[in-house]
């Protein structure tokens, strides 16, 4: 069974001025359990809409979506879907409901009617997973963006989802916060085998995921491994995206006759390859 199965999803929005904008145009995607998939695209390319059809926040006009075999159109099973697929949004301030960390994390399991002792266990576990155990009884208000976002992740983890969608969860964070949140996501993928959909427009966050899907104009225009995707420089640029900085430096060097080997996507690869060639 696929973790996520989308076939032919199509969805339009009405704008305030009465026009119609297509947010998803015949989008199909299959995700295996345990995969880490990055979804890239510029603002307005349809990424967030794609996220919202996954847990039934939006239902597409055409097409089917199944989460572990359960169709999102089946209203009676909507909470089964939502407890299987968690979602972390962009603004950490707008997804917390309580003023105390542990109360906020308990919110999801409380909604599901989980017994009290089990909730406490889950809160402990979730806080530990995001490295915020010592902040259990603090208020999130004064915390850094990265810390707030980690608490939001813990709130999702407490539902025990098998998939987590990060909808531009790093867009409002400083570099430190971005690093923290990405680390947590990678760790959850590795240790807990949670399937991750990582939506972003920071290319460097996508370099070591399993597959990259690129969205443009409401469609998925390419889906492949990072190595293969980043070979297609023209496609990336035509979709309004950047190359990761190490790659654009190495491409530039190659074009000036420096004979670097392979696709250089990370800082470490760039350091080593340049060192090798200059020695």
């Amino acid at each position: 069974m696929k973790a996520i199965h989308i076939s032919g999803a199509t969805l339009e929005y009405k704008t305030q001025t009465g026009g119609i904008v297509r947010a998803l145009n015949n989008v199909s995607l299959d995700v295996e359990e345990g995969e880490f998939i990055a979804l890239l695209g510029h603002n307005g390319s349809g990424k967030s809409t794609l996220a919202k059809i996954l847990n039934g926040l939006l239902i597409p006009r055409l097409g089917e979506i199944e989460i572990f075999g359960v169709n999102t159109k089946d209203i009676s099973k909507i909470f089964e879907i939502r407890s299987n697929i968690g979602m972390v949004f962009q603004n950490p301030d707008n997804q917390m409901i309580a003023s105390i960390v542990e109360d906020d994390i308990a919110f999801g399991p409380e909604n599901l009617g989980i017994p009290r002792e089990e909730i406490i266990k889950r809160v402990d576990w979730a806080l530990e997973k995001v490295g915020m155990s010592e902040h259990r009884t603090s208020t999130p208000f004064k915390m850094s963006g990265g810390q707030k976002q980690r608490i939001a992740i813990a709130g999702i983890l407490a539902i025990k989802p098998r998939i987590i969608v990060f909808d531009e969860s790093t867009a409002m964070l400083d570099p430190q916060g971005r690093k923290e949140v990405l680390e947590v996501a990678k760790q959850l993928n590795k240790e807990e085998k949670i399937t991750i959909i990582w939506i972003t427009h920071y290319m460097d966050e996508a370099v070591d995921c399993d597959r990259i899907a690129i969205m443009n104009d409401a469609r998925i225009v390419a889906i492949d491994t990072p190595q293969n995707i980043f070979k297609r420089t023209e496609l990336i640029e035509s979709c309004g995206l950047d190359l990761p900085l190490p790659l654009s430096i190495s491409n530039s060097l190659k074009s000036q006759g420096i004979d670097l080997q392979g696709e250089i996507l990370t800082e470490n690869a760039l350091k080593e390859e340049v060192c090798k060639i200059l020695k």
Partner: peptide, 23 residues
């Protein structure tokens, strides 16, 4: 990034010319 790469090169005995800050 350029500073990081340059520092790495320095540590390996490769000395590039000039101020290296930008790509």
């Amino acid at each position: 990034l350029a500073v990081k790469v340059n520092n790495h090169l320095k540590a390996n005995g490769i000395k590039l010319e000039g101020d290296i800050i930008t790509p």
